[in-house]
Amino acid sequence: MRAVSRRLAVALAFAASMAGAIADGWAADGPPAKELFGGMKLPTRADPSSYGFYSKGCLAGGVAIPTDGPTWQAMRLSRNRRWGHPQMISLLERLSQDAAKYDGWPGLLLGDISQPRGGPMLSGHASHQIGLDADIWLTPMPSRTLSANERENISATSMLKKNAFLTVDPNIWTPAHARVIMRAASYPQVERIFVNPAIKKKLCETWKGDRTDLGKVRPYYGHDYHFHVRIKCPADAAGCKDQADIPPGDGCDKSLAWWFTDEPWAKPKKDPNAKPAPKPKPMQLSDLPKACAMVLNAPSVDSEWAATYSANGAAPVSALAATPEPAAAGAAIAAQMPDNAPADVPVPLPRPAGN
């Protein structure tokens, strides 16, 4: 396994000189990149690495978080977006455990993380392309295991009042919501937390704890049903591009007040004499980092090797014990899948011991 990973890592490093020809092989009017990456069911068999930017890149060596853990459940299983860089998966497992232990939050309902090889998605996101973004519902995890049908169809809970723009509903919002968001922001590897501007305002007005990390919580459109966690590029990911540093301070200033003016919500004025703008061209494979052509065409892992990792690189947090033999691991995790789970979605399994 490691020998294969090293060989593929060399191939990806060589992509700067070779992958351009591969990418150029896809004509500008060829399949959009979202169709190419959205059609991949499994990740590459490679050492994990994120290439490019959060909204323009791909992921090698992605791992999946199991459908269920002691303090999380994955939602929207049919999307097959439970994959990410191991550092992202480890952080989600840790956050779920810390929030349950310290914050009165019973567990995380996990939305989209990334596709098996990252890249643009068929629907729903501009980012989430390099395995370093994750959506977490603002609905606490129930005490029972949700069925596959429920995971596809139930909706997350908005924190906003109905018919009251940019106003948090005090009958829905709780101190535990604030605690789980600020818990996520407290981890040093977390770069940003995106929330609705009303939620940011609520935190600014009510958070009485340490406000050092409040500046990481950034207001943005949407995000009233979930919060979005983004972590920094891993230290060894040479091809990964971080966002600019956040401004100093807690963010409870004029930059937040701007969201409560008309400007962010105003529709752009149209010139009646202007020619119609051309329809935006879908992102092509050639628009992504050159390494992404290699990632797209690389061999897949065996489904048994779709793994999760603990933060210290030992047995997966989700395994809760020494990693069993592959066959036993497959049976154990498959047994956790809800009834009527989508048949064409790979089951995330722990990596066999020693690999």
Rank of each mutant, 00 (worst) to 15 (best):
G61M: 08
G209H: 02
D271L: 11
E35L: 11
P86E: 13
A314Y: 12
N355G: 09
L91T: 09
G330K: 14
C292H: 06
I136V: 15
A148L: 10
M141P: 01
A311V: 12
I136D: 01
K269Q: 14
K270L: 15
V317W: 10
V180F: 13
W83E: 02
C292N: 03
M337V: 10
L108G: 06
K202W: 04
W72L: 11
V4R: 13
W207S: 08
Y309Q: 11
A126N: 10
L122C: 07
P70I: 10
Q73I: 05
D213M: 09
P248L: 04
D98N: 05
G39I: 03
D236M: 05
S303P: 07
L95I: 15
E205R: 07
D262Y: 04
A15K: 01
I65K: 09
D133R: 14
K208H: 02
G25L: 00
F260K: 05
R6F: 13
A156G: 15
W26E: 05
L138I: 01
A353Q: 08
L146Y: 11
K41H: 06
G330I: 07
T139W: 01
I231S: 10
W83K: 00
H128R: 08
S143K: 15
D133F: 08
G107T: 05
A13Y: 04
W105P: 02
E93D: 15
P299T: 08
R179Q: 12
A126R: 12
P346F: 13
I199N: 03
K34E: 13
Q97M: 06
P278V: 05
H125E: 13
P289G: 04
G107K: 03
A126T: 13
D236E: 14
T323N: 11
I65N: 03
L12S: 00
K216W: 12
K208V: 05
S286T: 01
A331Q: 14
Y220V: 10
H226P: 00
A293E: 01
R351L: 14
V195M: 05
K281Y: 01
M1P: 04
D253Q: 09
R144K: 14
S96M: 09
L296P: 06
Y225S: 02
T44R: 13
R192V: 14
W173K: 06
E93C: 13
